[in-house]
Design a protein around this nucleic acid. Structure first.
Length: 161
DNA sequence: GCCAACGTTGGC
DNA sequence: GCCAACGTTGGC
């Protein structure tokens, strides 16, 4: 079974670090997803993501958290260079250079959308299954089902109410 | 700034 | 391998 079903993800980014506008201004409208230091999120990038997977680009830790755009996975996983940069906040002294602990993928812009606020998402029963909305969720990368993706993109396309 | 949730660390 | 302490996330 090699046929690839489309896969979808939600990826959190602090807009003070990299906003949807920063992504739109980046060379090739593409950025390396630096800074993931959680094994579960790393494993998603390393083991499950494929080039072309859909990404909900989510703004976290900001005044208006929510989905700010659509993107796609643009590379296979490769070592996150910031783990070896002592001046970086993402430096990890324990990561062996020969077998880097932390990986990343490149993410490319598909389109900036209007903001779909977290508070709105919480009100939509069709989104209730999203891992993002589960109590205590902190994972910065979570899988999104095809049904959830369809529901989110439908809300983004719908006129604001 | 608070705090709940939860992942990681390290002593034993 | 247990588990308490600690650190981080991230909404509010």
């Amino acid at each position: 079974m090699t046929s690839a079903q489309p896969q979808y993800w939600l990826m959190k980014s602090e807009p003070a670090e990299c906003s949807i506008d920063d992504l739109a201004r980046a060379p090739g409208q593409r950025v390396p997803w630096i800074g993931v230091r959680n094994y579960q999120a790393r494993n998603f990038m390393r083991d499950t993501m494929r080039v072309g997977d859909g990404v909900l680009f989510y703004h976290s830790s900001c005044a208006e958290p929510g989905v700010a755009g659509l993107a796609r996975v643009a590379s296979a996983a490769y070592p996150d260079p910031t783990q070896f940069e002592p001046a970086s906040p993402y430096f990890d002294a324990k990561s062996p250079p020969a077998t880097p602990r932390w990986l990343l993928v490149d993410v490319a812009l598909v389109k900036k959308t209007r903001l779909l606020p977290l508070r709105t998402m919480r009100q939509r029963p069709e989104l209730a299954t999203m891992q993002l909305l589960k109590p205590g969720n902190r994972l910065s990368i979570t899988p999104v089902t095809a049904a959830e993706w369809a529901a989110v993109t439908a809300l983004l396309d719908a006129p604001e109410t």
